[in-house]
Simulated assay, not measured.
Amino acid sequence: MTAQLATPPLLHRDDRDGVVTLTLDRPGQFNALSEGLLDALQTELDRIASDPAVRCVVLAGAGKAFSAGHDLREMRASPRLSYYQALFNRCGRLMQSLQALPVPVIARVHGIATAAGCQLVASCDLAIAAASARFAVSGINVGLFCATPAVALSRNVSAKRAFDMLVTGRFIDAATAADWGLINAAVPDDALDAAVAAKVGEILAKSPAAVRYGKAMFYRQRQMALGDAYAFAADVMARNMMEPDAAEGIDAFLAKRAPQWRSPDASA
C-alpha cells in the first residue's frame, strides 16, 4: 500500500499574547494566492473576527517575498468566465474582510508585493516594509489590467500615481511606497521585525475597546457625506465614553497614573 503524503499547510497561524501572525506559506511560488491559500486565509480571518481575545493581526510571507499575487498557472488551467468571476469575487471578499476585522491588521512586507499581493498590502490597516521591498500592480505586463488591486491601491495613493502604476506595471521601491502612502514606513531590512513589534506594542498599549470602536468607525465614515460622518462619529464617541475603559483612562490621566485597561474578552 502506497503511503499518502500529507499536503503541506499553505498558511501558518501563530497566536501570542493577543497577537495573531498569519504567514503565507508558498515560498516556492512567492506566496502566490492560489485558491487554497485564499480559502485558508479567509477561514482564519473569519475565526479572528469572532474572537474577542485577539488584539492585533500581522500578515507576513514566508521565503523571499510577501506575495506575487494570483497564481497565474492555476488561473490559466480554468479558462472560463464563471471561474474568473468567482475567483476575483472571492479575492474581493478577502480584502474586505481585512478591513472588516475589529482589530488592526499590519502587513509585514519583504521582497516583492505585486498585483493581488500589492492589493493585500493596500487592504491592511497598516504596513511596514523592508527597505529592499518593491511594489507593483503588474498585470498589465501580461495583458491583464489589475482591476481589483486598483480598488485598494486607489484608496491609498493619489489617482494619478495609482493609474501610473496600473497602466505601466512599473515597480516602486519601499521609500517611494512610504512617500506615496501605500505603506506607513520603510525600515532597514534587519530592523523589519523590530519595527513591526514596536507598532504592535503601541497598539497593545491602548484600550482594546477604543481600538475596536475606532477601526469600525474609521472605515465606515469615509464613505459618508461630511454631515453624516460627523453625526455617526458623535454617536460612536458617545458610546465609547460609556465603556469602562474610557472612565478608567480619564480617571488615570487625572490621577497621573497608568491606566489599567479592561481585558477584551471580559464579560460586560
Rank of each mutant, 00 (worst) to 15 (best):
2 T>G: 08
2 T>V: 14
4 Q>E: 10
7 T>E: 15
14 D>I: 14
19 V>D: 03
22 L>W: 11
23 T>Y: 06
24 L>G: 00
24 L>E: 07
27 P>Y: 11
27 P>I: 03
30 F>Q: 07
30 F>E: 07
33 L>W: 01
33 L>H: 05
35 E>D: 13
35 E>M: 11
39 D>P: 02
39 D>F: 05
40 A>S: 13
41 L>P: 07
45 L>P: 08
46 D>I: 03
49 A>E: 11
50 S>N: 13
50 S>E: 14
51 D>I: 09
56 C>D: 09
56 C>R: 08
56 C>M: 12
58 V>I: 15
59 L>S: 10
59 L>F: 06
59 L>N: 04
59 L>C: 04
65 A>G: 03
67 S>K: 11
69 G>M: 06
70 H>W: 11
75 M>R: 13
76 R>W: 08
80 R>T: 11
81 L>H: 13
81 L>M: 15
82 S>N: 02
84 Y>K: 08
89 N>D: 13
89 N>W: 12
95 M>K: 03
103 V>C: 11
106 I>N: 00
109 V>N: 02
117 G>S: 09
119 Q>F: 00
120 L>A: 08
128 I>E: 07
128 I>S: 01
130 A>F: 01
133 A>H: 04
134 R>T: 12
139 G>L: 03
141 N>A: 14
144 L>E: 12
144 L>V: 15
147 A>L: 09
149 P>R: 06
155 R>E: 15
159 A>D: 12
161 R>F: 11
162 A>S: 14
166 L>Y: 04
166 L>P: 10
169 G>W: 11
169 G>I: 09
169 G>F: 03
171 F>H: 14
179 D>M: 04
179 D>H: 08
183 I>R: 02
184 N>Y: 00
184 N>C: 06
188 P>W: 10
189 D>T: 11
189 D>S: 10
191 A>I: 02
195 A>D: 10
198 A>N: 09
202 E>V: 12
205 A>Y: 11
206 K>H: 14
208 P>A: 07
211 V>Y: 01
212 R>M: 03
213 Y>Q: 06
214 G>A: 12
215 K>S: 00
220 R>N: 08
221 Q>W: 01
223 Q>H: 08
228 D>K: 11
229 A>W: 04
231 A>T: 13
232 F>C: 01
234 A>E: 15
238 A>P: 00
244 P>N: 11
245 D>F: 00
248 E>F: 02
248 E>G: 04
252 A>L: 01
253 F>H: 04
254 L>T: 09
260 Q>S: 15
261 W>R: 06
261 W>A: 03
261 W>I: 05
264 P>L: 03
264 P>K: 11
267 S>P: 00
